[in-house]
Each structure stands twice: as C-alpha cells, then as structure tokens.
Write a protein that binds this DNA or RNA. Sequence first.
DNA 1: AAAGTAAGTTCAGTATTTGAACTTACTCGA
DNA 2: TCGAGTAAGTTCAAATACTGAACTTACTTT
Lengths: 160, 160
Amino acid sequence: MKRTRFDRDPCPIARATDVMGDWWTPIIMREAFLGASRFGDFVDRLDVPRATLAKRLERLVEDGLLSQTAYQDNPPRYEYRMTEKGFAFLDVLVAMWRWGSEWGWPEGRGPAVELVDPVTGNEIIPQVVDVRTGEPIDPTRLRMQLKSSAKRRTVKAAEE
Amino acid sequence: MKRTRFDRDPCPIARATDVMGDWWTPIIMREAFLGASRFGDFVDRLDVPRATLAKRLERLVEDGLLSQTAYQDNPPRYEYRMTEKGFAFLDVLVAMWRWGSEWGWPEGRGPAVELVDPVTGNEIIPQVVDVRTGEPIDPTRLRMQLKSSAKRRTVKAAEE
DNA sequence: AAAGTAAGTTCAGTATTTGAACTTACTCGA
DNA sequence: TCGAGTAAGTTCAAATACTGAACTTACTTT
C-alpha cells in the first residue's frame, strides 16, 4: 500500500498538494529560496535527516521546482537551484507565511521575523487578491466549477 | 522516532507546514470549504481512508481550523464546520490553486475547473500581492529577517 | 425482526520517516 | 605520503504513519 497520490487529480489544489504535501518540502523550498543550494547547506540549516533530504531534493528536481547542476565531476556533486516553477511556488510559501503569522501563535504573540523589501526596506505584507478587482478573496463568494469552456462545449453539444 | 514537528519553529511557514503538511489535510479543508461537514460527506467525496480521515479531522479540530458540534447525542455524532481560522486558511488553498493551475499540467493543457464569484459570475484569478503596493510579490525583492521591533531594541541597547 | 445508516475503531500489511553509521573520492597539511 | 577532513549521499534498523477491509455501536426504517 502506498500513499494515495494526487498527481492525476483534476483539482489544482490536489496537484499542488501532491508536490508540496510531503513533510519537509515547503521548508526545504524556503531554504532554497533563501539561498541554500548544496546538500550540505540544507543539512546545516535545517536538521532534516539526510535520507529524507535526499529523497525530497530528488523529487523536487523530478517535479521541476529545482534544477540540478554538477559543480564537480568526481565524485559527482550537484547544486540545486530554483527554477521558474520553483520561484512561482513562492506565492504559496508567502500565503503560508501570512496565515502562519496571523494564526500560528497564541493570542497576543506573533513571530519574531518579518518579510521586507531589501531595496526600500519596507515591510512586505502579503495578501491574496482577485486580479480583476484587486480585492481580497471573499470566502463567501468563491465557488469552484467546471470551466466555462467545458460548460460551453456541453451546452453546445446539448443544443445540437 | 516520530515525525519532526514544526509547531515551535519561529518561522510562520514552518508553523503553517505543521498544520497543513499532513497528507490529505489541504484536500480535506477544500471539501470542508465546499460544504462537507459530516464524516460521511468527506468519505463520499474523497475516497480517503476512514482511519486517516478521523485522525485529520481530530487534528484540525485541535488546531482550531474546524469546530465540532454535536447534532445527535446517542450515539454521539458531530458536524465539522470551518472556523474563522479555517476560513483564513483559504488564502493558502487559493494560492495553491493558482500555482497548481499554472504549473500542475503538462504544457498546453490546464485544469478543467475554475474559480468564480457566484454573485457576478466572473472568473476569479487569485494573485498574491503586497498590501502596501498592490503589486505581485517580486521574488528577487523579498527577504526574511528579524522584526524591526526586535532590531530596534538591539540598536537601542547598543546606543546606550 | 431484519436490514440499513452514520461515524467511527480495529486490524494487519506496507510504506515512510528517523538518527546514526557507513561509503566514496577527493583535498589539505605535516 | 600518510592521516585527517570534507561533501554528498547511501544503508540500516527501529518507530510511525497510511491503507483498505472488516467490525462496532446505537439508532432508524421497512
């Protein structure tokens, strides 16, 4: 019996879960973003078990969030770098940051870290919005449904 | 040996990972948001193993993302409902949706589902932005650091 | 009275995670 | 040139976690 995989699921949330739902993976991506690139960088920063780390890096490379570049041949040694797909994933990490900051500590306390723009020095406060309106997502006005293109096709088929 | 927990980690991403990094949890939260409330609702919609589901619901209640309300006494039966903390988590799901939609399918294909506003009928395209500027997060201008309040205290101490 | 329902729990077999020790192929300093 | 050090894994055994199927409990319906 292996773990149920979501990589063929029609829902984008399930597909994302399949990639980043492995224990340690979001934290490994955080460190990759913060500059870790070699195996030892991750080991030094994270006390993650080496066996687990090796498996996670392998999968992240397979899934295209990290790329592997040899920096030495014998023995072969690699550097792991964020790909475009990996950078895009940052939005998820940042949404987790926001939620974790707001809800991850007991009342009255909060994290001792913050997000800043190194150019302006301003604090960055992430928020998820709708591109069309620029407004935050309203949970009471959010539905998931078959795409209108698929719907249209169905309607069209029904009309014929 | 038990799994390394991140619920005391100083990083908000780690705290979020601790809650939602369990396999099935994001998908269970998706269904809860879509209206599932009883044990059987989740079983019907998700073919999740009942034992796993029971454990996840228990932990989500413990962590305050779902609340448990008895709708019958003997035998005791509960309804699981989203709390404010659970609704806030929707931002993370929605960020996962966006990333999953864009990167979870092979080139040229995409998911057959979409997010819509049921009032206007418009598609909702989620994006993570900085509240201050309204602009998307630029991965090259994002640093995580000790909070300025902590820094200020240090600077002040140094000045004295 | 028998069958069905709802929400779990129990079970045994796999799979995964963990920490510690081991491996490989250099590189450096004495 | 010998021994120690480094880097990136791999291997191992023990502990957990996940899975699907069967079981339980206390009603409710036919």
